[in-house]
Amino acid sequence: MSKHDLNDPFADPPSSLPYEHRQHEAQQAQRFPPASPSAPYQSFQPPFKAPMNTQGDPRNAMGLPHDVDGRRDWSHSIFSCFDRPETCCLSCWCPCVMYSRNKSRLHHLSEFNVKHPQGGDSVSSDCFLHCCLNTVVGLGWLLQIGTRGATRDRYKIQGGACEDCVSIWACNPCTITQETREIELEEQFSQEGLPLKSRRSEA
């Protein structure tokens, strides 16, 4: 080491290691250079996964989004009535029976928040009144406007009385089937205790 190096405060101190050992360290330093302090930091942590929501909303079992007014769409389209042919056929040939069932099931859910023990009242005063109006003047479908409105209000579904009237008049079996499937979703939820999305993920 020169005299100039001894006066340099930033010069490396003389090494006491043998020459071969120092040469080996230099080769290792060339093969494995230290990481640059300016290199960007890369995280290898697993992505965050939100915990499963097992609570859910029994009145929105499909988890559909709400609009700014807190309303959502029907869980099933009005044109998907043929997915349930038995319900659609019964609604077509005996609308008074399906009207009575849906009304009693909806009333039971509103009162007790559990499924109707008999699956609805098929023969009741509501069924008789609907049948008489249909037989005499063909206006039994007018009674269904109130039930459809009550269904929309319970499940916070978009729409209004005019839309309900047109839908029932245009395709009565489709609207009854749509209401029936909406009520069934809450009944299944209250019976099994988990939202449909959670049950599908656990299957």
Rank of each mutant, 00 (worst) to 15 (best):
R31Q: 14
D164V: 03
I157G: 04
P37K: 01
M1L: 12
P65E: 07
N113E: 12
T135C: 14
T180E: 02
I168R: 01
V166T: 05
C96Q: 14
S122F: 08
D5E: 13
A35I: 06
E192Y: 12
K156Y: 07
N113C: 05
Q45S: 13
H24I: 13
C89A: 14
K115I: 02
P58G: 15
P9C: 10
P37R: 01
I157E: 04
H116D: 02
S77P: 05
G138I: 05
S36Q: 00
A161C: 11
S100R: 09
H24Q: 14
K156N: 13
N60C: 11
S104N: 04
S77M: 01
D164S: 14
P46I: 13
R105I: 08
C132R: 07
V166G: 00
W141R: 04
P46D: 11
R148W: 10
C89G: 04
W141F: 09
S36W: 00
Q23H: 12
C94T: 12
A29T: 05
P47G: 05
C92H: 08
Q144I: 01
P40K: 03
Q158G: 00
D12W: 01
H76L: 11
K3V: 08
W93A: 07
T180M: 01
P33N: 01
F112N: 13
G119D: 02
N134L: 03
R71W: 00
P173N: 02
L194G: 11
A150G: 10
V137T: 08
T135I: 08
L143P: 03
M1A: 12
L109W: 06
P65A: 04
M62T: 12
S201H: 05
S100T: 09
